[in-house]
Computed example of a mutant assay.
Amino acid sequence: MTPLAEIIDNCAYLDDWQDRMSYVIELGRKLPDMPQALRTSDNKVQGCASQVWLVTHANDDDSDPILTFEGESDAHIVRGLVAIVLSIFSGRPASDIVKTDALDLFTRMGLIEYLTAQRANGLRSMIKRIKDEAAQKLVG
């Protein structure tokens, strides 16, 4: 997975929208494929026009577990957005995930303003699902 700091730096360097979208697609290509067995209706993110699956793994030995995520999409740009979302949230404590403003990060990277309404809504749905799952892990 590409580190978030590297993604932010690369987006800052790319001042053309088409270059940024090409970069997002490239990030999606690097995303490991999700096993077919995990592409279930329970793992499907509701609210996305494209098909998006998300699986959460937690180290439940702690009151503030570290969460990691697997994600997949059938659309190239959305798969890249999934890769960025995973870079933002995966490997972090649930309490950090709940507090992270991922949409602000996408705005600062210059990625949100050119997304179609459907893609932006799908992105919000992915982020909400991750934050909801993190909040549930904190409650127990």
Score class of each variant (00 low, 15 high):
T2E: 12
I7R: 04
D42M: 07
A5P: 10
D132V: 13
D64P: 10
L67I: 14
I66Y: 09
M1S: 14
P65W: 09
L81D: 00
T116Y: 04
S125D: 00
L105S: 05
R39K: 07
A5W: 08
R92C: 14
L54W: 04
C48A: 09
H57P: 05
R79K: 15
S90P: 05
T40E: 03
F106Q: 00
E26A: 15
A75M: 05
M34A: 02
S125A: 15
V98T: 09
R39I: 01
L14W: 08
E133H: 14
D9M: 09
L105K: 03
V139N: 08
S125H: 04
P35A: 15
S87D: 03
E6R: 09
K44S: 12
I88W: 06
A37N: 08
Q46W: 05
I7C: 03
M34Q: 07
D62W: 07
L103C: 08
W53N: 03
Q51I: 05
K44I: 06
R108T: 11
G140D: 08
E26H: 11
F89Y: 15
L123S: 01
E6K: 14
D16G: 05
D104F: 10
R129A: 07
I25C: 00
E26Y: 07
S22G: 11
L31Y: 03
V82T: 02
D62E: 13
A5G: 05
K131D: 07
R20A: 10
R119D: 00
G122E: 01
K44D: 03
R108C: 06
T56P: 07
P35N: 13
A117N: 10
S90W: 12
E70Y: 02
N43F: 00
R39L: 06
L103W: 04
R29L: 10
D9Y: 13
D74Y: 05
G122L: 00
A12L: 09
D64R: 07
S90L: 07
S63R: 14
P65T: 11
S41F: 13
E70S: 06
R108K: 11
V82C: 03
R129S: 06
Y114A: 06
T68M: 06
D16Y: 09
I88M: 10
R79M: 06
G28Y: 04
I25R: 04
A102M: 08
F106R: 03
T107H: 14
M21C: 12
T116G: 15
L54E: 00
P93K: 15
Y114K: 15
Q46D: 13
D60Q: 14
P32T: 11
F89H: 08
R129V: 02
I8K: 14
Y23G: 02
R119E: 03
K99W: 11
Q18E: 13
G28V: 01
F69K: 02
P3A: 15
A83I: 02
